[in-house]
Write a protein that binds this DNA or RNA. Structure first.
Lengths: 223, 223
DNA sequence: CAGCCTGTGACAGGTTAATGACAGGTTCAA
DNA sequence: TTGAACCTGTCATTAACCTGTCACAGGCTG
């Protein structure tokens, strides 16, 4: 899951990001409306955490703009003071949930997962390609019924590829799906590495990852 | 199993929660419709116990809303006075069962387990995996006929795993089934601990718990 | 043929999980 | 009420292994 945290209190933002990161949620942070928009222009997110008080505007203002622009990503509002009016406004503008500071980290995480679950539950279950099947809910990959052992990163990469079979995925695109901005120091070579590891595990599966030199990779079924 | 108890009589709620907790059912309580909705927005439950008389509305009203919203979780209605009309209304609204106060705690628990079992669509009482069998009603585990001694938490964890054999269950997911909000201070490490204890008891049983580093745990039968 | 892109083995570092020891709490019986 | 047995969860230590970098080989492109 990839999440954008818009919050100008650096301490709080960092604490939340670390905590969520530990739970396997890739978390990018923005300290202002402008920064948030910059991130949103470049990166797709599964959930957005939005503080109301921001140095260069309000979270509600940003939310209105985003919804007006057709963005449907679930938004969870955060704020120190939440009057009934604020709350009604926020929900009317298209916020999906809200949380009053100070909040319990565990509750925050639970709500994030609830939003994510709701979003994901609309998506289908198993992804198949030939005899290869990936079940995102069960986090399992089977090859003709036999289980394949995958690590977290391998699973994420394979899911990305299987959701776009036959289509060329650029190395940068795959990288974005695998890493958050905090992992900015990770080299693009890491993608190549995981492609290699996946190929090894998929060898003889009737599914192969083709290299499109200079363009990216494409997942194909034999035949 | 994770359960939501919606009941405004604090004494009763606490008594039931403690009793159920002792049986390995993680029980959150809500004293009002609003509180119940807050919990439901955040946490998935296996069963809901719903009192009819609540300070800010009625249980039937809440039930109607929940069903209208597409929630299919089994609901057991509780009430002091249950006229035939109430009963018919409740069942028509999508309640799965009802119980008239004062009720026997054992009967309550039996009905909860019945609803849960039905939800899990387990035909027989028993869940089997290889030579390992778990009887949720009797709360017993047998290995090739020989009884295995399990503690409350071990039993709950094993049941969670046995109901999802071959699926990777994240540590967080297991934690949710094992602990209620009241146990918020318990560390995730506790799950690891019980996995270790289960493994010890299951050694040589032909059933093993595989670790998927970074993803969770998976119960598998040898072979 | 030169230059760049990609593949891959090996390795170091860091994170995650396993586990033994321990303390507090609960249960149960006397 | 006391004590014993046992269940629970924390902590700290150790082990496992996932991750990503590096380096170099090989191949594609122009």
């Amino acid at each position: 899951m990839r999440l954008l945290l818009v919050e100008d209190t650096a301490d709080l933002a960092e604490a939340v990001a670390i905590r969520l990161g530990r739970s396997g949620i890739a978390c990018d942070t923005a300290g202002s409306v402008a920064e948030a928009q910059a991130h949103l222009a470049v990166q797709a997110y599964d959930v957005i955490l939005l503080d109301i008080d921001l140095p260069d505007g309000t979270g509600t203002g940003l939310l209105r703009k985003l919804r007006a622009g057709g963005l449907r990503t679930p938004v969870l509002m955060l704020t120190a003071l939440f009057s009934v009016d604020d709350r009604v406004t926020a929900l009317n503008l298209g916020a999906d949930d809200y949380l009053v500071k100070p909040f319990d980290q565990r509750e925050l995480e639970a709500r994030i997962r609830a939003l994510y679950r709701r979003e994901q539950s609309q998506k289908g279950e198993e992804i198949r390609l030939g005899v290869l099947a990936l079940d995102p809910a069960a986090q399992t990959v089977t090859l003709d019924g036999a289980a394949l052992q995958m690590t977290r990163r391998e699973m994420t990469l394979l899911e990305l590829l299987m959701r776009n079979p036959g289509r060329v995925m650029s190395k940068e695109r795959l990288f974005e799906g695998l890493y958050s901005f905090d992992d900015a120091d990770v080299g693009l070579n890491a993608v190549e590495l995981y492609i290699a590891r996946l190929r090894k595990k998929l060898s003889g599966s009737g599914v192969r990852i083709e290299t499109q030199r200079g363009l990216g990779y494409r997942l194909d079924a034999d035949g």
